[in-house]
Nucleic acid binder design. Sequence first.
DNA 1: ATGACAAAAAATGAATGCAAAATGGCCAAC
DNA 2: GTTGGCCATTTTGCATTCATTTTTTGTCAT
Lengths: 249, 249
Amino acid sequence: MKSTIPDTGVPITPPATNGGDRQENRHEASLHGEILLRLRDYVVEGNIPDGARVPERQLCEMFGISRTPLREALKVLAAEGLIELLPNRGARIRQLSQRDLEELFDVMAGLESLAGRLACEAITDEEISAIEQLHYEMYGHYLHRDMHGYFQANQRIHESIVAAARNETLKTAYANFAGRIRRVRYSANFARKRQRWAEAMREHEAILDALRRRAASELSDILFQHLRNKRTAAIEHLAESEDDAPAAP
Amino acid sequence: MKSTIPDTGVPITPPATNGGDRQENRHEASLHGEILLRLRDYVVEGNIPDGARVPERQLCEMFGISRTPLREALKVLAAEGLIELLPNRGARIRQLSQRDLEELFDVMAGLESLAGRLACEAITDEEISAIEQLHYEMYGHYLHRDMHGYFQANQRIHESIVAAARNETLKTAYANFAGRIRRVRYSANFARKRQRWAEAMREHEAILDALRRRAASELSDILFQHLRNKRTAAIEHLAESEDDAPAAP
DNA sequence: ATGACAAAAAATGAATGCAAAATGGCCAAC
DNA sequence: GTTGGCCATTTTGCATTCATTTTTTGTCAT
């Protein structure tokens, strides 16, 4: 006797309270902030299908709160681009078109490219060593065909570069866009091509090389191209998986 | 007998309803959307001093609405980084430290750099001609020492490049960050140095040149450096003007 | 059986009400 | 004269309520 959202069939399973907040500062104090964090994770993790309605009432009883703080959180999520609010017709999970995805990847590419440029100005030898460490770790996962481990190491490398840029504003913006993409990744489980793996490894080595030499604009170029290639791979993958799972009505 | 906000001395002058909405889509339909647009402009135009409290109640009677839609708008503005919400202590205009400004300028530099890169892939000859037109116009203002006209032409050039990137996501993000900086510009009236003018003109010519040749990574470098120089000029100017107007308590 | 229309039901948008926290003032004590 | 604590007022946060719009459902006619 599990209650579901009739329209979408989404099971109402209250997710555990968020422990590790990433970009919000002290919003966990107030209720709407707490809700914001939980709801954002809930959406990012893909618990609600693309384009589905996000009924206030259901979410209210799911979180055990009234509509006021929830609506505040919805407005913020809409501003972040995760959902969209149709006047008098409630919130829907924002359906990303292929074009939207391309745009998002390009913006991410621009931000990482910038991060690399800035990192060259401020990164320490220790930080580079740490990234090298991650690189070798990633290489190990690559050899063992461990996609999950590879992904994690890869993500940590990119996060390290962003962190080395010493720019909190950039870091926040990066996290925001990353969240939008992650939602898609959760839904359509990216399986990367073998061939792309080898390429990506080579690119990562070039990244490390440029980083060691603090070659700012060169690193900027490489990072942009690296993300561009990622974009192409992702788009191709999505185009393929559209066969078995056609777009929502 | 003009009522004022006691704490801050902000005169309550209801701004006219916003005619030209820029980044929001159809939010003008609902009341909270309307309020969002008006309040954002009100804040961006610098009508409330840095770090001052933004009392809900005053704003409510100023806009003639209840607190619910206003609070929703405040949450969004906080997410955009224009204000900050202290738990149980209301909203304050976000005070940007010098470091914050530097970070913002760098992110803007990264976004414009990206815009240039992308523009090289898609820009038409007609669009380049239009930018050249703006460039000559700007040159005229430069010769006549018309700072306002120069500024406007300059801004339109940069906006044209962003538009030529054919990326709505980028455009929105760009507008967002530009708004945060514009607030500062309104408060502390940037007066650009003569010497910097000549430099900027040269840089703009280099930009045009790279754009004509569709030299993506070169343009990317130039644009980044151009914005970096802008940043330096702005920071210096702020540092100087701190003498007569010390920081808020 | 199907389509259109109308009424009921539900959901959204905004306003109000209420409890808790913070701000400010006042007085006493040092 | 300054400092510290106590109480009144204000303000914030959230729940509840009211009004309007949308969506569903039921009925009837074709």
